[in-house]
Amino acid sequence: MFLMTRSAKRKQQQAASMRNQLQPGSGVRTIGGMYATVKEVNEDTVLLDAGPGVELLFAKNAIGAVLTDDEYNRIVHGIEHDLKSDADVVPDDASSLTETDEPADAAAASDAPSVDLGKKDEAEEPSEDAEAVKADADEEPKKTDGGSDAK
C-alpha cells in the first residue's frame, strides 16, 4: 500500500513540475486531447492559441503533456522531421519491389511447367449440385400454419 501511494505521489509531483515549467510558444496537449500553443502562463491558468483567432483559457491542471517542437509539428501540421536524409524511400506502387533479372515475357516463357488448378472446367460446366440448388431456389417456399414445427 505504501509503495502504491509513493509512486502515485511521484507521478503527481512530475506532472506539477511539468506544468510549472510551461513557457509561451511551447506546444501542449490538454487532457481532453486538444493540441495548442501556449500563449500566456498565469498562476493557475494558461492561455492557449488553438488556431488563428482562437484563444482559450485553461486551468494548468488541464494540461496533459508538454510536447517537443518536432512532435507538435508532426501531429498538428503534419511536418515530419527528417532524421535520416539517406533513408530509402518506399515507392507508391509495388512494381519496383518485384524486380527480376529477366523481363516478364521471358519469365512467362521459362521452362517451369504451369500449374492447372482445374477451375476452368468447373466454371464452364455447372455441376449437378449447382443445378439442384438452382431448381430449389425456383420453387416457392412451403407455408406452415405456425405450429410447433415452425419454431
Rank of each mutant, 00 (worst) to 15 (best):
R6E: 06
S7T: 07
S7K: 15
K9P: 00
K11C: 01
K11S: 06
Q12H: 02
Q13T: 12
Q13F: 10
A15K: 09
S17Y: 06
S17C: 04
M18T: 05
N20A: 14
N20R: 14
Q21G: 12
P24V: 04
P24A: 07
G27Y: 05
R29C: 07
T30M: 00
I31F: 05
A36P: 02
A36Q: 03
V38K: 03
V38A: 02
E40M: 08
N42K: 12
N42Y: 04
N42M: 05
E43A: 07
T45M: 02
T45L: 05
V46Q: 01
L47G: 02
L47S: 05
L48M: 11
D49V: 03
D49R: 10
D49Y: 02
A50S: 08
A50I: 08
G51R: 15
P52H: 10
P52N: 11
L56V: 15
L56N: 03
L57S: 06
F58D: 01
A59H: 13
T68E: 14
E71I: 11
E71T: 14
Y72F: 15
I75F: 03
G78K: 07
I79G: 09
E80M: 09
E80H: 06
H81I: 00
H81R: 09
L83G: 07
K84R: 13
D88A: 13
V89W: 03
V90R: 12
P91N: 12
P91G: 15
D92T: 08
D92A: 04
D93M: 11
D93A: 11
S95W: 07
S96Y: 10
S96I: 07
T98H: 11
D101F: 12
E102D: 12
D105L: 12
A106W: 09
A107P: 02
A107W: 13
A107G: 13
A109C: 11
P113A: 10
S114K: 14
S114T: 13
S114H: 07
D116G: 02
G118D: 04
E122F: 09
E122Y: 06
A123S: 09
P126T: 00
E128F: 08
E128G: 07
D129L: 14
A130D: 05
V133E: 09
A135W: 01
A135Q: 04
A137V: 07
A137P: 01
E140Q: 12
P141E: 15
P141H: 08
K142M: 08
K143P: 00
K143D: 07
D145L: 13
G146Y: 08
D149Q: 04
A150K: 08
